[in-house]
């Protein structure tokens, strides 16, 4: 469905459903595999399992996973952690980070949330490839950030989405240890897995 997507067109394309499978090159599959490994690391550390890597000219320049519970900061999503690494990399190598970001391909296991989508679009990253949709905070599923910011970034999703979603389900089986007990226990079906503090 997303094969024909061209720059700037993404926000006009119909929503990608979780069962959609997008075609990736072997390289891209390798990068997604890497992102998955960080999502699993997050799960092992009682964090919402989202993993992310930033690739620059086929070289991995940043790796990250959700660190919200560890840092007590709801902004420490995998993507934000990678952004910080690119900024540091640019400084250490006396490069202009805005130029680097423009050539960055982002691989992330879950659709970036509204905050991360806005950050990545503002940094003009070249592309974002994600696994499953984020039906709680998604920067296109819940609120279409692209429609407002008109980014140059190409976005495609749906690769190994069931696996990405399963990781989230595994996490929520154990419940977020840091979230306060909700006053009203909401009824949720097993299928309707929601993500907290992605």
């Amino acid at each position: 469905m997303n094969e024909g997507t061209k720059q700037g067109q993404i926000h006009n394309s119909p929503p990608i459903m979780s069962r959609d499978i997008i075609n990736l090159t072997d390289h891209e599959k390798f990068f997604m595999e890497k992102a998955f490994s960080f999502a699993k690391e997050a799960l092992g550390n009682q964090e919402v399992p989202v993993g992310c890597i930033f690739v620059h000219k086929n070289e991995i320049l940043a790796v990250g996973r959700n660190e919200v519970n560890e840092t007590k900061s709801a902004t420490r999503h995998a993507e934000m952690i990678c952004i910080d690494q690119i900024v540091n990399y640019s400084k250490e190598n006396s490069k202009n980070y805005m130029e680097i970001f423009r050539e960055i391909d982002v691989f992330v296991t879950v659709e970036p949330c509204i905050m991360c989508a806005a950050a990545l679009y503002n940094l003009k990253v070249r592309s974002v490839t994600f696994g499953c949709r984020n039906d709680r905070f998604g920067g296109s599923t819940v609120f279409d950030v692209a429609e407002i910011l008109k980014p140059v970034t190409i976005v495609k999703g749906g690769y190994r989405s069931e696996e990405a979603m399963q990781l989230l389900k595994d996490f929520y089986k154990g419940q977020n240890p840091n979230a306060p007990e909700s006053k009203v226990k909401k009824k949720k079906s097993d299928v309707d897995v929601k993500q907290d503090s992605l």
Partner: peptide
């Protein structure tokens, strides 16, 4: 850092009061 807007810094500083922060 292009993401270090004043509100983001303030949120991180709140985290520091909870033994966190990045």
């Amino acid at each position: 850092n292009p993401c270090k807007h004043a509100p983001m810094i303030a949120i991180d500083n709140v985290a520091k009061t909870q033994n966190g922060g990045a």
